[in-house]
C-alpha cells in the first residue's frame, strides 16, 4: 500500500528546475532512501511533501489525500526532522517536548513524553536546557520530537549527517527500531551509501530533479553489476554528467 504518492512533481525556482517531473511511491512500513547527488532536488522534494514549498505543478498524495488541500489532517499524522532545524536552545528539553506535544494535540502530554523518553533513553536530559545537549543527544531529542504525534510517515533530511560513526550507527539502529516497534514509515535522505544499504528496504535515485531508478539495495547492486550501492550511485550520478560532457 502506497502511503505517499508523488506524481509529475515540478518545482522551478526561476530558471532553476530543482524538481523536474518526478514521480515515485513510498510503501507503507518501509524505510525508503531518497538518494541523489548534491542539488538533485531531495530537500526540495521533502519540503514540498511537507507543504513548506509550493510545487510549480504535479500532485503529492499522502495517505491518499492531496497534501495541499488537507494540510491539517495530513501533517497531523506526519513528522519531520533534520539537522538544519533545531528545537529552541533556550527552553528545557521537557518544555520543548511539551510544546510540540500540545501543538499536535497529544492527549496525555506528559505520559507521551515519558514513554518516548524511555524509548530514546533521554529521561535524564528532560530537565536540561536544550542548548547544553551534545550533538548525539540532540539527534535523539529531535527524533523524540518527531515521534510525539505517533506519525505514520516520518520524513528525515540527512538525519545522520555530521554525526560521528558511533552516534550515526546508534541513530540507524534507532530508525530501525522506530520502523519495527512503532510501525512508522520512513522516507529519508543520506549521502552515506553503506548506511543506506544497511537500513533501507527500498531506495529511490533521483538526479537533476528527475527519477532515475528504484529498487531494493540488493536488486540495484545486481542490476548495475556493481559490488555495492556506492558504485551504483556513482554510475547514476555520473551517467548524466558524462553524457553532458560528451555532447
Amino acid at each position: 500500500m502506497a502511503i505517499l504518492e508523488v506524481q509529475d512533481l515540478v518545482k522551478e525556482f526561476g530558471p532553476v528546475k530543482a524538481v523536474n517531473g518526478l514521480s515515485f511511491e513510498v510503501q507503507e512500513g518501509t524505510i525508503t532512501g531518497l538518494l541523489g547527488p548534491n542539488g538533485a532536488g531531495k530537500t526540495t522534494t521533502i519540503q514540498m511533501i511537507l507543504d513548506l514549498i509550493t510545487p510549480t505543478s504535479g500532485t503529492i498524495n499522502v495517505f491518499g489525500l492531496p497534501i495541499h488541500d488537507n494540510r491539517e489532517e495530513v501533517l497531523g499524522k506526519m513528522n519531520f526532522s533534520s539537522p538544519y532545524v533545531s528545537l529552541p536552545g533556550n527552553l528545557r528539553v521537557r518544555e520543548n517536548l511539551a510544546t510540540f506535544a500540545r501543538l499536535y494535540g497529544v492527549k496525555d502530554v506528559w505520559g507521551k513524553i515519558d514513554e518516548l523518553a524511555d524509548f530514546f533513553n533521554i529521561r535524564k536530559l528532560l530537565g536540561r536546557m536544550t542548548s547544553t545537549l551534545s550533538t548525539g543527544q540532540l539527534t535523539r531529542l529531535n527524533l523524540t520530537k518527531a515521534l510525539l504525534n505517533d506519525p505514520k510517515l516520518l520524513l528525515l533530511d540527512e538525519p545522520t549527517a555530521s554525526l560521528d560513526p558511533d552516534i550515526a550507527d546508534r541513530t540507524r539502529k534507532m530508525l530501525q527500531r522506530i520502523k519495527n516497534e512503532r510501525g512508522v514509515t520512513i522516507l529519508y535522505t543520506s549521502h552515506n551509501m553503506e548506511e543506506v544499504e544497511e537500513i533501507c528496504d527500498t531506495v529511490i535515485f533521483i538526479d537533476q530533479g528527475s527519477f532515475k531508478d528504484q529498487g531494493t539495495p540488493t536488486d540495484l547492486v545486481k542490476k548495475y553489476g556493481h559490488k555495492d550501492l556506492n558504485e551504483v550511485f556513482l554510475t547514476i550520478a555520473r551517467g548524466s554528467e558524462f553524457s553532458k560532457e560528451e555532447d
Binding site: 501533517l75 519531520f80 538544519y84 532545524v85 533545531s86 529552541p88 536552545g89 501543538l103
Partner: peptide, 18 residues
C-alpha cells in the same frame, strides 16, 4: 523572530498549525 533565531520555524510549520 524567536523561532527564526532558534531555527525552530520549520518545526512549528510542519505541525498542523495554521
Amino acid at each position: 523572530l524567536e523561532d527564526v533565531w532558534e531555527r525552530n520555524f520549520l518545526n512549528i510549520f510542519v505541525s498542523p498549525l495554521r
